[in-house]
Amino acid sequence: MAESGKIDPMHQFAIEPLFGTDHWSLGGMNIAFTNSALYMVLAAIVLWVFVIGGMKRELVPGRWQMAVEYMTGFIKNLLIANIGDKGRKYIPYLFSLFMFILLANLLGLLPLGLFGLHPFTFTSHFTATGVLAIMSFSIVLIVGFYKHGLHFFSLFVPHGTPALMVVPLFFIELVSFMVRPFSLGLRLFVAMTAGHVLLKVLAGFVINSANASPMLGLTVGSASFILMIGISALEMLVAVIQAYVFALLTSVYLNDAENLH
């Protein structure tokens, strides 16, 4: 919260170095361990603990093993539905991607503010989502050119294109292809940012209206609070859906690289 008494809904996205590590650097680049990095580490650890619970490898699974196998099976089915049997080899990458984003989204929604902590959603930073998007896009390019060589460019000319339209269509398809990493990264960043801003704005309404007068607090404040409850539920849905969309689009793009048309 700002000292001025105003509530800044963007303050939650501020990155702050923790534990006095702001002078850490690598090759002249600052690599301070920030609150964002802390949540990345937390997401990785939570995911690690989650998957360890699925490593019992029993024939008849317990609940935890069942949950982990459900997630891997979900990713497997997603890949097989989009790419076919050749998609199985992307299970490790897509599972990592989906679960990492999902846990980042969900950890950022934890009501840790109740304990005086500041939850942080690193997927609301395009520096983070951009890296993930570029990673997926690079894999698509590498797989595409490795498997099909220059023939990969035929992806930009759909079957049955009249000869006259080949050149214009090639450029249109090329642009739509090159936009993919941006749309992939920005979609996640925008969705997470917007949801968190909305929640903070409504929280500001509750606090400011209650401070202004009891009457306003009871009307505007309570209405905003009820809205917040609904939007919090919606945000949990968005957290899952955005992780799913990221994974789904990655698998769709991988299908282009794997199977062309």
Binding site: I31, S36, V131, L132
Partner: peptide, 15 residues
């Protein structure tokens, strides 16, 4: 730089 570095470290561990 810190964001990219830590993301690569943590996602590298995850992957």
């Amino acid at each position: 730089s810190s964001q990219i570095f830590w993301l690569l470290v943590t996602f590298g561990f995850v992957f």
